[in-house]
Amino acid sequence: MAISGEATQTSDEVSSKQFGTDVGSGMIEVTVEIVSWLKDAFDKKGPGRLILHEAIAPGTSIMDLIQLMADKYPKFAKEALDDRKQELSGSIAVILNGSFVSSLAELNTGLKEGDIVTFLPAFSGG
């Protein structure tokens, strides 16, 4: 998996292909959006969403994607996964193609080309 990203609005997105990922060799591309202070885990600040374009193997699930990103971004791993780095920590919430992923079973959903996965803090207060 290759990850590239910019802390920008969608108009300034950078595709993974531009960063040398071979999307053509059986890989599929999904868009990952990072919302609010979860961007801190990627050392990004300011308004807007952090947009990442990810090339992943077909059949990769949402949970697989989280694990792959956790491997690359240690701060994200700390936010997203429990101490054993095997389960979600309860600190993040997931939206797939604009619809809330509410159960752990749904995290096993296989991703498709063009899917948009949004990660945001699982903050319920205010």
Binding site: V35, I95, F123, G125
Partner: peptide
Amino acid sequence: GVVFHWGTSRAISVAEPAGW
């Protein structure tokens, strides 16, 4: 830390995308 440093005022940046 978010609440400690910013109170609840940053919650709005989560509330809209989360649908609440």
